[in-house]
Amino acid sequence: MRHGKQTPEPHEHGGDEGGVLVRGARRYEWSAAVGMLGRRRQVYDGLVALSGVRPGDRVLDIGCGTGYLTRRVARAVGPGGTVVGIDPSPSVIGYAATRAPANCTFQVAGAQALPHADAAFDAVVSSLAIHHLPADDRVTALREMRRVLRPGGRLLVADFSARPRHLRLVNLFGGMTRHARQHHPMADLADLVGRAGFAPTGSGDRWPSLHYVQARRPLEDVSAGAEASRP
């Protein structure tokens, strides 16, 4: 991927047509750093800890964007583990791939139809991506996450539960912070996870106004693939 003055293609973080567009991997990185007020690493390492990933795990990051969380997960699983980040934007995937550690790969794909086999992963993580999906596709995407998890596998999804007050100030910078303005609250995150067939194991709030849900694919669940294929 060339990094010049060319206009990058739209980035649709976590969705297909109809989702919210974020233009430019570098702009996305800048706005994410500003939006976290210099605490991006602490915030994402906290999410990694909440996900329960362990050395040697196989992990999928949904709506990975430029791959920041994916790379933090890769550190946690170590050289014996693997992490795959997926996003529908070739631009951000190209950007992420240039920064990928040896145990980390990136693929262009949407959350609604994951290009992975049933039970392929020990854990699935997703941060600030679900709200970008069209509302009618959110349960479908979560069922796909359940399908690619092994029975007993772990899910962590996080999104904004309220509009962080500091992002209102960030908006004063104008077009460079378009991504910050697209973070809409996801009050029904736990309900979506339950409707997708997961067994919730925990939830809570983290700075800055993040709400997370932890869940597992039930051990007795053998039908996730069939359900995910239903219209």
Rank of each mutant, 00 (worst) to 15 (best):
R2A: 14
R206T: 09
M1F: 09
P90R: 12
A100D: 12
A162P: 06
R165G: 08
A190I: 00
R206L: 15
D191C: 04
V108C: 10
T201S: 06
S91L: 05
V157R: 03
R165C: 04
E17P: 11
R150T: 15
P55N: 04
V124Q: 02
N103Q: 02
Y28D: 13
Q214V: 00
G94I: 06
E227A: 15
Y212K: 00
I93Q: 03
S209F: 10
V43A: 15
M1S: 13
S203Q: 14
D122H: 11
G38F: 07
R195G: 10
V43G: 02
G175F: 09
R58V: 01
S209P: 02
L128V: 09
V157T: 12
A119I: 02
T105E: 11
D61W: 07
G67N: 05
R71V: 10
H116L: 15
R168M: 11
H13K: 03
D137N: 08
L21N: 10
F106S: 02
A102H: 02
R143Q: 14
R138P: 01
P231N: 08
L114I: 14
S223F: 10
M1C: 07
R23N: 03
A120I: 04
P134C: 03
Y212S: 00
I86H: 06
H116S: 06
E227Q: 14
R150W: 06
F121W: 09
H13Y: 13
G202S: 08
W30I: 12
Y28C: 09
G174S: 04
G19N: 01
D122L: 00
D205Y: 04
A120R: 09
D61H: 13
G56K: 00
V73C: 02
E17G: 07
D205V: 06
W207K: 07
A141H: 07
W207G: 08
R27M: 04
R71L: 00
